[in-house]
């Protein structure tokens, strides 16, 4: 699942290519042998772990666009923007420190483009995201399995891109610290996962020394409201396939509305609810190769674009201590 804000601020932690175990060989090595589908993972928001000493790396591409957006609650289009398109190319890696502890990183490169008007598109490396995903509880309940997760993440801007040029900016340039609690229930091949995340955003510095929000500010520093994220997903998981439906809600805790015909600003109240689907296919040969695809659509928003997103990725999962394992 890939989410684009009004701003083409691709948020890597929201990118959810699906992954499960990749091979029988792999399952055999897994700590969770009994758990059919809990074998690998690539995002911090899905209930999937990869086993100890495994590394999953991949690249993904995302394409999102909108031609309508909300100024506060007022939905409109804009002949001076046309369709705003954002493309993302991201490198991702997930390492199994243990069967209960995974470390994930992602690094996106982003481009933006407006089909109308005169504003110049932007491009650059956005924010490095690193997550630690911990699964303290995994227990059989009835015929299914419940697992609980705690996920902590940090994202840091890696380039000095311009945040204050929305909606063309590639991000809002805050350093974020995120905590997520997640629960998953799996019964046979069917699962439901729910999670809630709190995103604490640092203040940002912009290139001008005054700005108006709902009042005048004489500083180049902008106080960024924090964000609450709620995610629900359900679907089918098997050895070779995952198919899921995802609903996502982002609620900015504070911030202000874009006034009618004003420019957007990084500390706007950017809320949305989106719905989408994701698919993942895992090859049995070559073992470890995975393909993902998906898309989503913003159903309702506030100070964001009504974005349609599609994305796809290719990943490879392998043991980094193969020899040692083989000796076993």
């Amino acid at each position: 699942m890939l989410r684009l804000d009004f701003y083409p601020n691709f948020r890597p932690y929201m990118i959810k290519p699906l992954l499960v175990k990749t091979s029988k060989y792999f399952i055999a090595l897994s700590f969770f042998v009994a758990l059919f589908s809990e074998a690998s993972a690539q995002t911090e928001a899905d209930a999937i772990m990869i086993p100890k000493n495994y590394l999953c790396t991949g690249v993904m591409y995302g394409h999102s666009s909108w031609d309508h957006y909300w100024e506060g609650t007022f939905k409109r289009d804009n002949g001076n923007i046309g369709t705003l398109t954002t493309q993302m190319y991201s490198l991702m890696a997930n390492y199994g420190v243990s069967n209960k502890l995974n470390v994930l990183v992602s690094l996106p490169y982003i481009t933006t483009h407006a089909s109308a008007g005169t504003l110049e598109g932007q491009k650059g490396i956005q924010d490095l995201m690193a997550s630690v995903k911990y699964m303290p509880v995994e227990a059989q309940v009835g015929k299914g399995v419940i697992s609980l997760y705690a996920i902590g993440s940090v994202s840091v801007p890696l380039s000095n891109y311009v945040a204050d040029f929305l909606p063309l900016s590639i991000g809002v340039h805050s350093t974020n610290i995120m905590g997520r609690a997640m629960a998953d229930y799996q019964l046979s091949n069917f699962f439901v996962t729910g999670s809630a995340q709190y995103v604490r955003r640092s203040n940002i510095t912009i290139d001008r020394n005054s700005y108006y929000t709902t009042e005048m500010h004489y500083t180049d520093e902008v106080k960024m409201p924090n964000v609450a994220v709620y995610n629900f997903r359900t679907g089918y998981r098997s050895e070779s396939w995952i198919a899921e439906a995802v609903v996502d809600n982002n609620t900015t805790l504070g911030g202000f509305d874009i006034r009618k015909n004003d420019m957007p600003f990084p500390s706007n109240k950017m809320n949305f609810t989106s719905a989408g689907v994701n698919f993942k296919y895992t090859f049995s040969k070559p073992a470890g190769l995975e393909l993902t695809a998906g898309g989503d659509y913003v159903l309702h928003g506030r100070n964001v674009g009504q974005t349609t997103t599609i994305h796809g990725g290719i990943y490879y999962l392998f043991s980094v201590k193969k020899e040692k394992k083989d000796k076993k």
Partner: peptide
């Protein structure tokens, strides 16, 4: 557009929604 030029443009832009 260099990053420095972008900063100069933004600093002096003083467009819509500014004083």
């Amino acid at each position: 557009a260099t990053r420095e030029n972008k900063a100069i443009v933004a600093f002096w832009a003083d467009g819509a929604g500014t004083y």
